[in-house]
Design a protein around this nucleic acid. Structure first.
Lengths: 139, 139
DNA sequence: TTGGGTGCAAAACGTTTGCACCAAT
DNA sequence: ATTGGTGCAAACGTTTTGCACCCAA
């Protein structure tokens, strides 16, 4: 049962299993695109969970801090989030229609090792997003 | 003379050479880190140029739109900019001290070609930033 | 029971916009 | 003399915060 997995997941990171959090995890689990705060608020309303923006922001912050979610920025002036236990991937953002696709690219841990060797900097995470025209928007 | 280069640069992209713009180009030319709006405002004040935030935002927008500058986002909730005619590079952002280093990494145009071949998506630009601990902050 | 979580309101930021005036060409 | 650029103020959207109340453990 999906809900119990989410309860366990929250317990693992010492967070209480509240309706809002469980519902946000539900949304994260079934959405392919990284979600933004308004998507979460809309989904909570649709599921009949009373909520407000501050709670959603706080939830996304704590989930990210605990490593459950990843922060994604697509140069929109707002933050998006996705589950961190998905296969490592990056995003293709269409500058015309705004669609977001996942893409698996070559592992860049090789780059990170090289950076460590050459500069001493220890990379813990990276962000790599691609912007351009999706198949449909190229005319 | 530096200023005349900037005047020419602005003329090339059909923008008028105003004191604010010339001074922002001056700052961009001498700064290694991508600048944010407040850095620009502070520099303008220091140079005795009367200004206000709206003008600086408009300037950075038009410069980016004309291709003179690149928009850089380092997951800070604000935008940064750097000159686009510099050698292609990425950034190492220290999560402890906040320092930003440039880094030259392997060309990822190979990835972009692969993406085109596999998905049909035409990549026009990408953002790749690394987050972690700089040499000094690793104890 | 109790401390973490939430709701509400207000505030803090970063950024954009409308409009009158100014200044680069 | 044009018209693009600026300053100012107001608006906007996102995110944070303070505080009282509530509920998951």
């Amino acid at each position: 049962m999906e809900v119990n997995e989410h309860k366990a997941e929250l317990k693992n990171v010492n967070l209480r299993a509240t309706p809002a959090r469980l519902t946000i995890l539900k949304l994260l689990g079934r959405t392919k695109k990284p979600i933004d705060i308004n998507m979460a608020i809309d989904f909570l309303k649709k599921e009949g969970i009373k909520t407000n923006p501050a709670t959603v922001f706080r939830t996304m912050n704590v989930l990210t801090q605990k490593g459950v979610t990843l922060l994604i920025q697509l140069q929109e002036g707002k933050m998006r989030y996705e589950l961190s236990d998905r296969e490592h991937h990056h995003h293709l953002v269409c500058e015309i229609c705004g669609n977001i696709e996942d893409v698996l690219v070559d592992d860049i841990s090789r780059m990170e090792k090289k950076i460590r060797r050459k500069t001493g900097f220890l990379v813990k995470r990276h962000s790599l997003e691609f912007f351009g025209l999706c198949k449909n928007c190229q005319n």
